[in-house]
Design a protein around this nucleic acid. Structure first.
Length: 199
DNA sequence: ATGCAGATCGTCT
DNA sequence: GACGATCTGCATC
């Protein structure tokens, strides 16, 4: 079942937690790829100086100002895309960054697009998963609450969730230490996961 | 195992 | 004109 628009309208930190365990599905001409969401981050708009929408409405973040459940996709470092879903209270330009997936479908296709073999290397980061699922600017603004090229369906609730500070936002003066990154505890497919637990 | 430089371009000042 | 919500490969310890 596709998650309804109401799923995305609560506090974005709650939405980010609740997205863990759900399944991101990408339908393309090459085939279907999908994975369990295992890592997310919440970005809170005007309260959050780490957020792209902190300074208000610009062309880049226009997708955050419409209906919730819209794909907000941007190019980072000139070479990688990152996928977010708009969320939060009506009128607030908030979103959840999808940071990692556990691959479940179309694994051969993902491996081909990534040029990597190991399962752990396919979707363990925001840029990686966009490459594996062929997510780019052509999907900007797509409604993930509708059947289509990109949508999110319900999966199993994770057993345990962990919260940590967000990655790569040290420039944020006010919110860099807020624990708004969420992962499924112990899941090996999160970004930065190690092969073996360091003992 | 850890660290660092380079790639590369859209977006905003 | 400067700078990323990143990833990779190569260097070093």
């Amino acid at each position: 079942m596709i998650l309804p628009r109401s799923f995305y309208s609560g506090d974005s930190r709650e939405v980010a937690r609740n997205l863990l365990g759900q399944i991101l599905v990408r339908e393309s001409s090459e085939g279907r790829t999908a994975g369990v969401i295992v890592e997310t981050e919440a970005y809170l708009g005007k309260l959050d100086d780490a957020a792209h929408s902190y300074k208000g409405r610009t062309h880049r973040v226009r997708a955050l100002f419409g209906e919730k459940g819209a794909a907000y996709i941007y190019l980072i470092y000139g070479m990688y895309y990152c996928l977010n879903v708009s969320s939060g209270p009506a009128g607030e330009p908030e979103c959840v960054l999808i940071r990692a997936l556990e691959p479940v479908e179309g694994i051969d296709l993902m491996a081909h697009r990534r040029g990597k073999e190991k399962l752990r290397d396919l979707c363990s980061g925001p840029g990686k998963l966009c490459q594996a699922l062929q997510i780019d600017k052509s999907l900007y603004g797509v409604d993930v609450t509708q059947k289509g090229p990109l949508h999110i369906v319900s999966g199993a609730a994770p057993e345990k969730i962990e919260a940590t500070p967000r990655i790569g936002i040290d420039y944020a003066i006010y919110t860099k230490d807020e624990p708004w990154r969420f992962i499924i505890a112990g899941n090996p497919f999160v970004s930065g996961a190690k092969k073996k637990p360091s003992l």
